[in-house]
Structures are given as structure tokens and as C-alpha cells.
Design a protein around this nucleic acid. Structure first.
Length: 881
RNA sequence: GGGUGUGUAGCUCAGGUGGUUAGAGCGCUACGUUGACAUCGUAGAGGUCACAAGUUCGAGUCUUGUCAUACCCACCA
């Protein structure tokens, strides 16, 4: 027996444990069924589940469960990401509480500490994914720093290096002074800030009293200036080109050069050039062979090349300004809105810094990745995202992959005594190659840098399936079927996976890429910890159940749009679950038991034929929409059917049978109700796996299979004609209810209704469905009027299709109100008829619109006119009262 | 500066290829404890589909422009 109340907490965890322990999430490796696979976007091992994960993983689980029920061989490959900077940060923070820095521990000990932390605390998010119902194959859980995945990293690194696609270079890179590492362009975020523009002057060498005026937002960088640039098209300043000027304070002489980087229209027209600390200036410096002067230490304090060694940039700036003012070179300071680069993790200002770093030749790798999408080997859903992808890929810059961190994949690079580079998959090989190279045993030094986290994530689609080993999983499940992820990660991850996979596997990593939006707060604001508007999905699950949260995500997911979280709406889907629970209880109470091998095509009763046709229609709608990744349409189709058709109508229609005497009808209806409820559980399962499983297990104990493996119905014939009479009755009942409500007739009053002008088929319906109509419309009886029946004025009248519903009210009728009601209807009919007539009297419409459309318009016009005549008649009848 | 979305009921949003009287949930109004369910039922009110022009027999849907709004990329001495 089902409990009276729906309490998801009672069974969600129990059901999940059973699935996991029974191996229900595992693919059958001996089967030759079609494969369907998804690799999870690996959450950071430090992560806790947020609403974005809840959305992303709900969508994946819906696809996984749907395809599993479709009979495919399904693998959802799960795992976590070591998240270099993020994890190192968390562990360092923990150490700091004990007053320890990572340097106190040393590299080896520190990495050991991180591993310990990972073993102890790294499983939070995977536990949370289980609460959400994610049906991943946990036995295959991977971690980007696993032995296997690390081997994949080394192998592909060596491959790329030997192909000349990874190289070391001294370049200006984005330097994060908090973590003291290089970061990639993508890890830098630009923030609007109100800064200051400083105008000051450099004296011209050997020309006392002559100056060149410059403007900068960062005066402290002047100690790294190696030129001042002026455009040779700048009439006012070009006479200075070729002369030298003197940097104040340090009195270093630098040339004034001609370069179009200096826009005559901007600033003062003259630009100080600091090649070691500005990406544009770096290019200018290269063009003119200017020396590079580095003025910063790795922690972004000024170095000994400046007078303010040891000061932070901001303190040095203050000093510089003070000194320029004291010496009389400062001219003015203005407020200046500007954009400043910050590290996305560290939050500190990113400094361009000259360092030795390692790069992947992304422009070369991008070529194949672009081609694969151009030729449709991988498709974005929605398609419009391929524009974003192409735009970025076609303008891609070399990817800086080296990080001066301790937590991550140490690069498989060894240096010989003369700095010769040996790149091999492991130390033994490197040693062997080096020994051979030098002709003797040499001491090697390993590169200390680790790789950007996204390097290993880029291999995720094949490294998790076993590459570089020969693996039956790789054989069966690669390329994966679809990747589901947010648009914010297209560049970080999708693009890199495409590049790495096309390079190494010569095949796309996934055939489709479904991109969804962001989960925002109730007001549409981006959720963030700093704003304090985040909602913890675990609390939502606790409050409403995982099914309600999942259904919310599915129902709100429409392509190309963000989702605003709505507590009321999630509560609404919890109510939907409650409704379903109670419908199941109704079935249970009326002994609706699943009949094995029940042939739903052999039912005889109208309502049963009707609900079976509707159930099949709903199934097809869900199928069609899931196949097209239209999650909200699919979810709404189940919702409408379960609540709108099954609960609102079928259960009500079945009551006269269950409370009646016809045992044969009862037996059939019991079987059908059970069949339909079963059908609802099947098509709802991908969205609400917990409640559907709980009901499935309760309503029948002798199942052929678990719901999670229940076959998804396909290729069903729908007998639409068979249900026309019930559709008619439903419309009639609605019309009568509407009339009752408008006449303010109490629900308890049992009425007698007369149906005038009923066509023979309507008469037949009234006769056949008499009991049912009376029960649902709360009537004593309904009968069809004989020909020549006279309507008396004390009858309320409602035109319904070809007939008129007559409701005798024995003198209590309010004629004024009745006239108003009928006139309102007349107005609306007139408006419609006017529209039809206008269209049909338009010669070109009749001529050019398809015959079908014109015909349909004619039919509507005729129908409305017939109805209008009846309403007019009705009005005439009460005209004198 | 380049690009991409969005603008439909009080609120949050659906409306693949143009064709009934533009839909849903929440909220609102009235009635209701009818033998699954008040986490409910029945009925109802509520919309110039941002604006303008165009294409078309016909535009919420297609084109162009305007306004509003959100985001992405690049740059800003």
C-alpha cells in the first residue's frame, strides 16, 4: 500500500542505492546494441554541486535514461578534474590556518598533502550527483591525475612536442602574481574600473626647455621604457622623431621612434614604449629592435631595475607621481575609465611579464577542429553556437600551457647538462635518450612546470575510455554521442577537446554538443557567492525532492536561453509529483493491477480507447522532442498528459464505472488504468526517476524488468477516430459546467438538461454516454428534444456545436443577465465572422492561398454563422422579458 | 570597435518549416471539502506579441531600421 502522503525523502536514497548496487548504470559489454555515450564535464574535485551542475547533469541524465530505455547500450562516463589552481588554492588555504605555507613543506610533501586532501574531501560532489539521480557508471569513475590519464597526458605531450606543436619560448605572458604562475588568455577577466590618466613630459636630450608630452595610466612602468613612439603622420610631433629624450627620475636616455602604433588622435600623440610590460609595446619593440627591461619581480613588486625596488606597483606609482610632481614634470591627472585584467581565480591584477613558457601551437591544431564542424562531423545544438566557435577558433593564439604550480601534471621534459631538451614519456626513456645523445651517463634535471588543467581535460573524451591502451570501451563508445555543457566553457573545454581529439584520434570527441544557458536567481541576476544570491541544490532537494528539481530544470530548458530559478515553480513540480502519487493511490484503491501481456488494442469501452490513444500520442510527443533535444516540450508533454488527460479526465470518467455494477467494464477499466499509469511512469522516468520507480515497484510486484530498463514504446498505431465520442462528451461537459458557473448554480444542484437540434451522432453519444455525462456535469438527466420542441423563456440557452443546450430554471432566470451573456457571445461571433468574411471576399486570398486553407476558412465561416443564427434566435425568444 | 541573444498576460516563460479565437505555470477573481489528491477541483478575468516600415492573399513567426536589455570577443598610451 502506498503511503497517504508523497515524501520523496522516504525512498530516493534507497532507490539510488539499489540501482548502483545492482549495476543498473553499467553498459553490457557483450551486447552489440547501438551504443550511446556521454562523458560528464568533470566537476572540480574541490567542487560542491551548484545549480549549474544540477541543470547540466539533469539534462545528461535525461538523455542517458531515455536512451537506455530505447534499448541502447549506454555509458555515462563520470569523473572529476584535478583543477590545478583551484585545488592548490584550497589546500594552501587550509595549511595557512595552521600557519604553514607550501614552501615550508616543499613540493613533494605539498603534493602529498593535496592527494590526502583529495582522498578525504574530494568526493563531495560525486555524492551530490547521486542525490540528483545521475545514473553514471561509478565503477568507471576517473580523475584527471589518475595513473592512466596521466599516461595519456604524457603520451600526447611527447607526440605534440615531437611534431613541433609544443614549443618553449620566452614571451610576454599573463602573469598571476598571487600564484606566481603564467595563465592563459582565457583565465584573465577584464573589469571596468575608474582609473586615472597621468599626463607628464620627458625632456628632449640636448634641447633644454623642449619636452615630449606623454600620457599613461601606469606611470611606474616608465622605468621600463625603452622608447617613445610618434607617428610619422603626426605633423605636430614628427620633427621629434630620431631625437632622444630622457626618462625623469632615473635620467635614462631613450630614442623617439616612428611607429603607427602611436595614434595622433589619441592621448598626446606620443606613446611611451615599455616592451617588457605591455603586449602592444612588445610588438613595437620587436619592430624596432628595442631592448626589454623587466621591472617586476614574480610577486609583482618592482625590482632593482627601478628606484623603488620592493614596492608594490601601487606604492611605486604613488612614489613616481610624487617625484614627477616634485621635479615639475607632471602636467595633469584626469579620471579615466579603463579596463583592468584580473586573474579569474586569484582576483589579483594580471601583469604582462617576460618569462620562459611552453606553448601549444593552437592555430595549427584548430584547422582540423574547424573543418570537422564545418563538415558536420560535430554539430552544435543550438546551431548558432558554431558561430561563436568558429570566430574564436579562427583567431586563436598560441596556448600557454605551462604553470608554475605544484599541483598538476609535471611536464615530461628533462634538461641535459647543456640545457638540451629531452621530451619522453618517462624518466627512464629520457635518460636512455640523453645518455645516447651525450655518449655517456649524464645527470638530467626535470622541468618543474606543470600543465594547464585544461590540457588534461582536453583529452577527457578518450583518456577516460582507456586511451592510450587498446580498450573495448574506446572501441564501443568513442566518439561519444553528445556533450552537454554550458556556453561559458566552449572555449576552455569544447574547443580544446576538439583540437586534441582531432589531432590524436583523427575523430571528433562527440557527435553533438548541446549547449545550455546559465541558471540565474529569481530576478534573473547571475548567481554568485559574493552577491549572496546562490541557492544550494541540496537544500532544494531536501525541501522538494530531487524529482521536482530535475523536472523544473527540464521544463525550463529551452534552447538558447538562461533559466531563472523559481522556488514557486519547483514547488509546482513537487505538486505534480504529489498529484501523480495520489493518482497511483486511486488506482491502487480501485484494484487497477497491471495485466501481463495486456493488449491495449483490444479494449472496447470508449473512455479506454480514448485514454490509450492519448497516451500513445503523448509518448510520441515526448520521443520526438527528446530526439530533438527539446527538453521543455518533452517535459510539458508528459505533464499535460499525466495531469490534464489522465488525472483531470480519465480518472473522473472511470469513476462511474468503478462505482457501478458492470463487472466486465470494471475489469477492462482496471486493466487500462494500470496500463496507462504504467505508461506515464515509463515516459516520465527520464525526468523523475525516483517517484516513477517507487510507484512502479509498488503497483506491481511481478515485473519483467526494472523501470530503469523498461523498453521505450515505439512504432505504435494510434486509433484517433475511436476516441471522437469522448472528445465530444468532454466538450459538452465543459460547456455545461461553464453554463452552470455563469448561472451561479450550486455544485450540489442536480440538473435536467435538454439538447435541442442534436444531430443523430450527438443523439447516439448522449444515449451511450448518458451516465458518464450526468456524473461529470452533475446532472439528473440529459435528453435530446423531439422535433418541434418549443423552447420556453425560462430556459438558459447555450449554443454547443450544432445543438443548443437548454437548462430549465423554473422562473429564477435573470433575463437581463441572460441577455448580456448571449449578447457577449454574439459580439464575439460577429467579430470572428467579420474576419472570415473579409478574408474570403479578398479575391487574391481565394485565388492564391492553398485550396485547403480557403476551404477551412469557408467551413469556419459557415459554422460561426450557423451558431450566430442560434444565438440570435435565443435572444429573440427572451426579447420581451 | 566586432559579434551573439532577448523584448509575447501582473510575474516567469512556451510558441521547429508564415495559415483556427496567440498558450502554460505562478499570481488574481468567484464557487467548491463531489467516495485519489486543498501540495486539490470547477469556472473565469487578463495580451495593439517593444516600435516603425517592408515582403506576402495572409506576419508573434520572414526582411530592414529604431529603441530597450543581456552577454561574448578585442582594444583603450
Amino acid at each position: 500500500m502506498l503511503e497517504k502522503n508523497y515524501t520523496p525523502k522516504d525512498f530516493e536514497e534507497k532507490i539510488y542505492t539499489d540501482w548502483e548496487n545492482s549495476g543498473d548504470f553499467k553498459p553490457d559489454m557483450r551486447s552489440d546494441k547501438d551504443a550511446f555515450s556521454i562523458v560528464i564535464p568533470p566537476p572540480n574535485v574541490t567542487g560542491v554541486l551548484h545549480m549549474g551542475h544540477a541543470l547540466d547533469n539533469t539534462l545528461q541524465d535525461i538523455l542517458i535514461r531515455y536512451n537506455r530505455m530505447q534499448g541502447k547500450n549506454v555509458l555515462w562516463q563520470v569523473g572529476t578534474d584535478h583543477a590545478g589552481i583551484a585545488t592548490q588554492m584550497v589546500v594552501e588555504r587550509n595549511l595557512a590556518k595552521e600557519g604553514i605555507s607550501r614552501h615550508d613543506l616543499g613540493r613533494e610533501k605539498f603534493v602529498e598533502t593535496v592527494w590526502k586532501w583529495k582522498e578525504k574531501s574530494g568526493g563531495t560532489i560525486t555524492k551530490q550527483l547521486r542525490r540528483l539521480g545521475a545514473s553514471c557508471d561509478w565503477d568507471r569513475e576517473r580523475f584527471t591525475m589518475d595513473e592512466g590519464l596521466s599516461r595519456a597526458v604524457r603520451k600526447i605531450f611527447v607526440h605534440l612536442y615531437k611534431d613541433g606543436l609544443i614549443y618553449k619560448a620566452k614571451k610576454l605572458v599573463n602573469w598571476d602574481s598571487k600564484f606566481m604562475t603564467a595563465v592563459s588568455d582565457l583565465e584573465v577577466i577584464q573589469k571596468e574600473t575608474l582609473g586615472k590618466m597621468y599626463y607628464y613630459k620627458y625632456p628632449i636630450e640636448n634641447n633644454p626647455g623642449e619636452f615630449i608630452h606623454i600620457a599613461t595610466t601606469r606611470p611606474e612602468t616608465m622605468f621600463g621604457d625603452t622608447a617613445v613612439a610618434v607617428s610619422d603622420k603626426n605633423e605636430k610631433l614628427k620633427h621629434l622623431i630620431g631625437k632622444n629624450c630622457i626618462i625623469p627620475i632615473i635620467n635614462r636616455v631613450i630614442p623617439i621612434i616612428a611607429d603607427d602604433h602611436a595614434d595622433p588622435e589619441k592621448g598626446t600623440g606620443a606613446v611611451k614604449i615599455t616592451p617588457a610590460h605591455d603586449f602592444n609595446d612588445f610588438e613595437v619593440g620587436r619592430r624596432h629592435n628595442l631592448p626589454l627591461i623587466n621591472i617586476l619581480n614574480p610577486d609583482a613588486t618592482l625590482n632593482e631595475n627601478t628606484p623603488y625596488s620592493g614596492l608594490s606597483t601601487l606604492d611605486a606609482r604613488a612614489k613616481t607621481i610624487e617625484e614627477l610632481e616634485r621635479l615639475g614634470f607632471m602636467e595633469k591627472i584626469e579620471d579615466h575609465p579603463m579596463v583592468i585584467p584580473y586573474g579569474d581565480r586569484s582576483g589579483v591584477i594580471i601583469e604582462p611579464l617576460m618569462t620562459d613558457q611552453w606553448f601549444v601551437d593552437a592555430p595549427v591544431l584548430a584547422k582540423e577542429a574547424i573543418r570537422a564542424v564545418e563538415q558536420g562531423e560535430m554539430e552544435f545544438v543550438p546551431k548558432s553556437y558554431e558561430k561563436t566557435y568558429f570566430e574564436w577558433m579562427r583567431n586563436i593564439q598560441p596556448w600557454c600551457i605551462s604553470r608554475q604550480l605544484w599541483w598538476g601534471h609535471q611536464m615530461p621534459i628533462w634538461y641535459g647538462p647543456d640545457e638540451t631538451i629531452f621530451c619522453e614519456e618517462n624518466e627512464e626513456e629520457a635518460q636512455a635518450v640523453a645518455d645516447k645523445h651525450y655518449g655517456k651517463r649524464v645527470e638530467l634535471r626535470r622541468e618543474t612546470d606543470v600543465l594547464d588543467t585544461w590540457f588534461s581535460s582536453g583529452l577527457w573524451a578518450f583518456s577516460t575510455l582507456g586511451w592510450p591502451d587498446k580498450s573495448e570501451y574506446l572501441e564501443k563508445f568513442y566518439p561519444t554521442s553528445v556533450l552537454v555543457t554550458g556556453f561559458d566553457i566552449i572555449f576552455f573545454w569544447v574547443a580544446r577537446m576538439m583540437m586534441m581529439s582531432m589531432y590524436m584520434m583523427k575523430k571528433v570527441p562527440f557527435k553533438k554538443c548541446y549547449i545550455h544557458g546559465l541558471v540565474r536567481d529569481e530576478k534573473g541576476q547571475k548567481m554568485s557567492k559574493s552577491k549572496g544570491n546562490t541557492v544550494d541544490p541540496m537544500e532544494t532537494i531536501e525541501k522538494y525532492g530531487a524529482d521536482a528539481l530535475r523536472f523544473f530544470m527540464a521544463a525550463m530548458e529551452t534552447q538558447g536561453r538562461d533559466i531563472n530559478l523559481s522556488d514557486a515553480r519547483i514547488a509546482g513540480y513537487r505538486n505534480f509529483a504529489t498529484k501523480l502519487w495520489n493518482a497511483a493511490r486511486f488506482c491502487e484503491m480501485n484494484e487497477c493491477k497491471v495485466v501481463k501481456n495486456f493488449d491495449e488494442n483490444k479494449v472496447t469501452l470508449g473512455i479506454n480507447k480514448w485514454i490509450i490513444a492519448k497516451a500513445k500520442q503523448a509518448t510520441q510527443e515526448v520521443t520526438r522532442n527528446l530526439d530533438a533535444y527539446r527538453f521543455s516540450d518533452a517535459a510539458n508533454a508528459v505533464y499535460q498528459f499525466a495531469w490534464g488527460a489522465f488525472c483531470d479526465w480519465y480518472i473522473e470518467l472511470s469513476k462511474p464505472i468503478f462505482y457501478g455494477e458492470d463487472e466486465a467494464a470494471k475489469a477492462e477499466t482496471r486493466a487500462v488504468a494500470a496500463w496507462v499509469l504504467d505508461r506515464i511512469l515509463i515516459i516520465l522516468h527520464p525526468f523523475m526517476p525516483f517517484i516513477t520507480t517507487e510507484l512502479w515497484n509498488n503497483l506491481c510486484t511481478e515485473r519483467d524488468c526494472k523501470l530503469i530498463h523498461a523498453p521505450w514504446p515505439k512504432n505504435e498505431q494510434i486509433d484517433e477516430a475511436a476516441s471522437a465520442d469522448i472528445d465530444w462528451a468532454i466538450e459538452l461537459i465543459s460547456a455545461i459546467r461553464s453554463l452552470r458557473a455563469e448561472m451561479n448554480i450550486p455544485a450540489s444542484a442536480k440538473l435536467n438538461i435538454i439538447l435541442k437540434d442534436a444531430a443523430s451522432c450527438s443523439q447516439a453519444n448522449v444515449k451511450a454516454l448518458h451516465k458518464l455525462i450526468c456524473s461529470l456535469a452533475r446532472l439528473e438527466k440529459i435528453e435530446c428534444a423531439e422535433t418541434g420542441f418549443q423552447i420556453t423563456p425560462d430556459m438558459a440557452q447555450q449554443v454547443f456545436k450544432e445543438c443548443t443546450i437548454l437548462l430549465p430554471l423554473k422562473g429564477v432566470i435573470d433575463f437581463a443577465a441572460e441577455r448580456e451573456r448571449l449578447n457577449k457571445e454574439l459580439d464575439s461571433l460577429n467579430r470572428n465572422i467579420e474576419g472570415y468574411t473579409r478574408k474570403l471576399s479578398n479575391a487574391s486570398f481565394v485565388e492564391r492561398a492553398p485550396a485547403q486553407v480557403v476551404e477551412e476558412e469557408r467551413r469556419r465561416q459557415a459554422e460561426a454563422e450557423e451558431k450566430r443564427a442560434k444565438v440570435e434566435e435565443a435572444l429573440a425568444r427572451i426579447a420581451n422579458f
